[in-house]
């Protein structure tokens, strides 16, 4: 059989069908978010798919208003918490990971391979088994119920260090020596030479950190007990399990809000992605 015939008869259908099922949740999410709830719900034959924003206004109203000093819909409070966590966390990841990666990739010191091995090895450990002691620890530190309780444990980021180390190893070696001969301090060598050269790697890390923190679920679920400190993920799943019952239109509207920032970051930085993806795309779903 010729390649082109095979393509048309077999490969294309397989790709289209698997692609369709992969995207089915997303397609259904978009449809449900923008179609009036009752036309989805009642299975009436005269379905009219007129796009509408009523699910969004329903969601914003029904999710309740915060009672603190700023009185807005809780959805916005949660959105703000999620953004704060993702932006702040990504920023700290970039600093901490790039420092460690610089040491592992460009400097030599006793125990380097052992420590790097430990970091990489920790990728092979199931993180979730530490959930119970981690929660007890956060209580002792007094940061349960607090965004910091979600942020700080996430800063032990093996995968980011690994990615950046791999990246920094590919940088040319001689400019460091040249810089050192110029009498530059170690700290300035890192901030003014290594960091600017590592921008592509850091960009990839930005995307993945943001995505990873944004989509975090178990830790915030356990750590954040009060509705005013929920993240969007925890808040929306809470609503879907309790107060929203059958209002799937509202839940899907919330899910749409939830995917917007990650999709924006994804499409903005997509060009820089391929390099990073190869090493980094290992948070499986």
């Amino acid at each position: 059989m010729k390649m082109s015939a095979l393509k048309n008869l077999f490969i294309w259908p397989v790709l289209v069908i698997t692609g369709f099922f992969s995207l089915l949740p997303l397609i259904w999410l978009l449809l449900s978010a923008f179609v009036p709830e009752n036309s989805l719900a009642l299975l009436k034959p005269n379905l009219k798919f007129l796009p509408t924003l009523e699910n969004f206004s329903g969601l914003v109203q029904a999710s309740g208003r915060s009672t603190g000093t700023i009185q807005v819909s809780r959805i916005w409070i949660w959105f703000f918490n999620s953004i704060l966590l993702a932006v702040g966390g990504t920023f700290l990841h970039l600093i901490i990971d790039s420092m460690a990666a610089y040491a592992f990739a460009r400097r030599s010191f006793p125990g380097r391979n052992l420590l790097f091995g430990l970091i990489v090895g920790s990728l092979m450990l199931p993180q979730m088994v530490t959930l119970v002691p981690l929660y007890l620890l956060l209580i002792r530190l007094g940061i349960n119920n607090h965004l910091a309780g979600v942020l700080l444990p996430g800063l032990a980021d093996a995968i980011g260090i690994f990615l950046l180390t791999q990246f920094m190893r590919t940088l040319p070696i001689d400019m460091e020596d040249a810089a050192r001969l110029d009498g530059i301090s170690e700290w300035r060598l890192y901030t003014q030479i290594i960091i600017p050269l590592s921008v592509p790697g850091l960009t990839a890390l930005t995307i993945f950190s943001f995505q990873g923190i944004w989509n975090q679920f178990v830790l915030p679920l356990i750590v954040l007990q009060r509705s005013q400190s929920f993240t969007l993920q925890v808040g929306l799943s809470y609503l879907s399990q309790t107060e929203f019952g059958f209002h799937y239109g509202w839940i899907m509207a919330g899910a749409f809000i939830m995917i917007l920032p990650v999709f924006m970051v994804f499409f903005l930085f997509q060009k820089n992605l391929d390099k990073g993806l190869r090493i980094y795309s290992i948070h499986p779903s």
Binding site: F80, L84, L85, G88, L92, N145, H146, L147, A148, L151
Partner: peptide
């Protein structure tokens, strides 16, 4: 300072 700021920023329920 940054670390403290970030953790303090977290909407504090207490």
């Amino acid at each position: 300072f940054l670390s403290i700021l970030l953790s303090a920023c977290g909407v504090s329920p207490t």
